[in-house]
Amino acid sequence: MRSALSAFTPLNLPISIAIAALWILLIGLLAEGAYRYTQAGTEIVRKIVHIGAGNVILLAWLLNIPRWVGVSASILFSAIALLSYSIPILPGINGVGRKSLGTFFYAVSIGVLVAWFWTLHLPQFAAIGILVMTWGDGLAALIGQRFGRHTYTVWGMKKSWEGSLTMALVSFAVSLAILIATQGNGWQGWLISLTIAAVATTLEAFSKFGIDNLTVPIGSAAFAFFLSQLFWG
């Protein structure tokens, strides 16, 4: 299996960290500005952060940011997320009293996947897990809320087939794009991507209280990794 993580050059570490930090800062400011100065609802603002912030995994991958930086950032943002449920640090992102730990789980999942796959020098699998959650779940929520007309209920949660279909299609596209970029365009990548799409959509449908932000990325990355080991070694 190809390694997609090149040797890190210590001299570019401060610049790499600054670029990633600036990206997160811009997303946060954009979301908070939308919350304060537009008619965008809280859920729309949350999805701006959800989709925007998740792409930091690509920056971490492309800039070869070290594992310790990613894990440390995950711990920091996990703590901030927990604190923000009690203190309105960013009210547009976490409403006080909201019965979901989604933002916290999101930060934790990034740390877990960076710790796991940076150690193996296979960051593409961390990227698959995070981007399936970032784009799949983010767009599924927006499409489901806007166009969801055919609904179903799982454990008391109302879902839409339109949203679930979006989750499956986007998860498949994200996984396939990364696997083609790192492994080449073979039938294995298509089969793995179909499996990831099914797994991610199922996990998203059955997860409550925001835990899909943990189960979807870790589950997607794990299936991608183990199936890749099976097919490519």
Rank of each mutant, 00 (worst) to 15 (best):
W118A: 12
I110V: 14
L139A: 14
G138D: 11
A115V: 00
T119L: 03
W118K: 08
V114E: 03
A115D: 08
W116K: 01
A141P: 03
T134K: 06
L142G: 10
I128Y: 10
L139V: 14
G138F: 09
G136F: 10
S109H: 06
Q124G: 13
F125A: 06
T119C: 00
G138P: 06
V112L: 13
T134N: 05
I130P: 03
A141R: 05
A126Q: 05
V108W: 05
M133T: 10
G144W: 05
V112R: 06
W118D: 06
A107Q: 11
D137G: 12
F147S: 09
V108G: 01
A127R: 05
R146I: 00
A140P: 06
G144F: 11
L131H: 09
I143M: 15
I110L: 13
V114T: 12
A126D: 08
G144Y: 07
L120W: 06
D137T: 12
L113V: 04
M133P: 00
V112Q: 05
G111K: 01
A107H: 01
A141E: 13
W116A: 13
V114H: 00
H121A: 14
A127Y: 09
F125I: 04
W118H: 13
I110S: 09
P123Q: 09
P123R: 01
G144T: 10
G129P: 03
S109M: 02
H121N: 15
L113W: 01
A140H: 09
H121V: 07
V114M: 02
L131N: 07
Q145T: 15
T134S: 11
D137Y: 10
F117H: 12
T134W: 08
I110Y: 11
A115W: 12
G138N: 08
Q145E: 15
S109L: 03
V132T: 14
L113T: 01
W118N: 06
Q124F: 07
V132C: 14
I128N: 02
I143G: 11
Q145G: 08
A140R: 05
Y106Q: 11
M133K: 13
G144M: 10
V108R: 03
F147E: 04
F117W: 03
Y106L: 04
P123F: 08
T119V: 00
I143D: 08
A107D: 05
I143Y: 14
V108K: 00
F105S: 00
Y106A: 02
P123V: 12
S109V: 02
G129A: 07
A127W: 08
V132Y: 04
M133G: 12
G144K: 07
G111R: 01
H121C: 10
G129N: 04
V114L: 02
H121G: 11
W116N: 06
S109Q: 06
A127G: 09
H121M: 12
V114R: 00
Q145R: 15
G111F: 01
V108M: 11
I130G: 02
L113S: 09
Q145K: 15
V114K: 00
L142C: 07
G136V: 09
F105W: 14
I143V: 15
L122Y: 08
G138I: 14
H121F: 08
I130Q: 07
A107L: 02
A115R: 04
L139D: 13
Q124T: 12
